[in-house]
């Protein structure tokens, strides 16, 4: 019972601090959560299909399209809600600190794209598994996008 109150208290304080953060930080939180959830949905399916086949699943183009549609719909809904709740901030262009944060996060996330992509190429050169190459490159893209928003959140919290 005590733990439930503790968790509820934590959630309340998180929601209270969420109201105090800038529109762009809120969008970073929203996009990071949406992309992570969609990525989990996608790779959960890939792993299940691979296990059923007994080998790496081939590229699942239908699933990739579903992943993209899911992200677009979820982003539009969440961004609309956030924009309505802070219309003035949403209309205003990014200020100097927000631009610096976006630039730094974009730069750092490029390494998150490059390192697993190089690993995927090395894996292909050894194993010659084209299906795995596809999934690893797609994973690199996902991780890079998620990390960009995570780095933004980190910089907003820590100071840029």
């Amino acid at each position: 019972m005590y733990e439930i109150f503790n968790i509820a208290g934590l959630m309340m304080s998180f929601l209270a601090s969420f109201q105090n953060i800038s529109f762009r930080e809120k969008t970073a939180w929203a996009m990071a959560i949406i992309l992570a959830a969609a990525g989990f949905f996608y790779f959960d399916k890939v792993v299940r299909i691979s296990n059923a086949l007994g080998q790496t699943a081939p590229p699942l183009i239908g699933l990739v399209i579903g992943y993209v549609i899911l992200i677009v719909i979820a982003s539009v809904i969440v961004m609309s809600v956030l924009a309505v709740s802070a219309a003035r901030e949403a209309d205003a262009p990014a200020d100097e600190r927000e631009k610096i944060i976006a630039d730094k996060a974009g730069n750092w996330s490029s390494y998150v794209l490059a390192v697993p992509a190089l690993g995927a190429l090395w894996h292909y050169s050894v194993q010659m598994d084209g299906n795995m190459l596809f999934h690893l490159i797609f994973l690199s893209l996902m991780l890079s996008q998620i990390s960009e928003y995570v780095f933004q959140i980190f910089l907003y919290r820590r100071g840029a």
């Binding site: 953060i21 800038s22 529109f23 762009r24 205003a92 100097e96 600190r97 927000e98 907003y156 100071g159």
Partner: peptide, 21 residues
């Protein structure tokens, strides 16, 4: 012409503003 969060960051010494700001 900045956000309130940027003013907070400047006051706390977490961010050095541009010369213009």
């Amino acid at each position: 012409g900045v956000t309130r969060q940027t003013v907070i960051a400047i006051e706390l010494g977490k961010y050095s503003p541009s010369l213009e700001s």
